[in-house]
Design a protein around this nucleic acid. Structure first.
Lengths: 190, 190
DNA sequence: TGCAGAATTAAACGTATGACTAATTTGGCC
DNA sequence: GGCCAAATTAGTCATACGTTTAATTCTGCA
């Protein structure tokens, strides 16, 4: 998978830098995180990051690979009883956000959307690929309706994981499903 | 209203600084906006901002006065036919976001929530005062349900005004009301 | 073993920022 | 007109940042 001839040490350090970048961008957003901070966290010299990636923007982009295949979301939601599609979508959402590794890139994106145009673009693109553009036609739901579904999930992420408003932040997953799934189902059936 | 004895020039310049601060914080968030940028926009020396306000944090706080009385939201939603409370809430939301002056502080808050703890606190507090803590008891809706209402509105703000995802961003207000009001009403009636 | 190239580092540069200091201007008031 | 406090400015400081350069260490291979 890695380019042939690459020495083992390189990929390891590279991966470590990316891991630190993922963590810090997720915690502090694009502007808040610094090359020096990432380097310190990874235990390397700041210049090494430029050696590998070239610029902060490129580290950011490289660290942002969303570990979720939009197609999986689309097919999971589209497959099965249609009157439970809303519940399936909410459960996927909660599964992703319940996994720290999977959640991290989304946290980073949400925290960077205002200061980094690339982040905003990637967020919009993911919403399109995973929610709006493909689930909609699959279920016969209008584009505008699907953006409404997006608002619901986006708001959930903001309230529960960024702002951490109680009691939403500590609520049980099943409570969230019970509250939100019917709303999304309503959009699907409208 | 202003402190007695203050010379007219002072309040004027002070107001102008606050106006520029409001605009720039709304456009670029807390970290993105700079004292120098605000000073340039207001046509004054950067040191004057410190003279009046003391620090960037304090300019930010002073510029963030939300021009919306939470009580008005609460009473507007609570007054009138109960089965149209959801629609009333959505219409207040759209009225606020449709007015550039009223929208500005919320844009600034949303864009600063990740980099400024004061912004996060103020956002949470407004959600509590305007939505969760007082409309809930008034309509007999649980706190958790009311945070779900909050997610819907927060997501709407993010998708429509920050990320500007189409066709949500350009949709007519009435289309938004038609789609979102029933969802909020559903929470009220659950 | 010695060489070549990659990995890694130390050190510095240029810039932008928030903040501070001291000086200057302004405008009302006796 | 002269005085005084407030408004306003020019200039500077220290810091943090992304980035660059040049030197140094490491490692696989001939």
């Amino acid at each position: 998978m890695a380019k042939a001839g690459r020495r083992p040490g390189q990929t390891e350090t590279r991966e470590q830098i990316l891991a630190s970048a993922r963590a810090l961008f997720a915690e502090q957003g694009y502007e808040g995180a610094t090359i020096r901070g990432i380097a310190a966290d990874a235990g390397v010299n700041p210049a090494l990051i430029h050696h590998f990636f070239g610029s902060k923007d490129k580290v950011f982009a490289a660290s942002l690979a969303i570990p979720v295949d939009p197609s999986v979301i689309v097919s999971t939601v589209a497959t099965g009883p249609r009157d439970a599609a809303g519940e399936r979508l909410v459960r996927i959402f909660l599964t992703i956000w319940g996994n720290p590794d999977a959640r991290r890139p989304f946290l980073a994106l949400l925290r960077s959307v205002t200061s980094n145009e690339a982040a905003a673009r990637m967020m919009r693109q993911f919403l399109r690929l995973a929610i709006i553009d493909r689930i909609g036609p699959e279920l016969g739901v209008s584009e505008l309706r699907m953006t409404a579904v997006g608002t619901q999930l986006m708001g959930l992420a903001m309230m529960r994981y960024i702002l951490q408003v109680e009691p939403m932040a500590s609520a049980d997953d099943e409570e969230i499903v019970a509250m939100i799934a019917p709303v999304i189902q309503h959009h699907f059936d409208a």
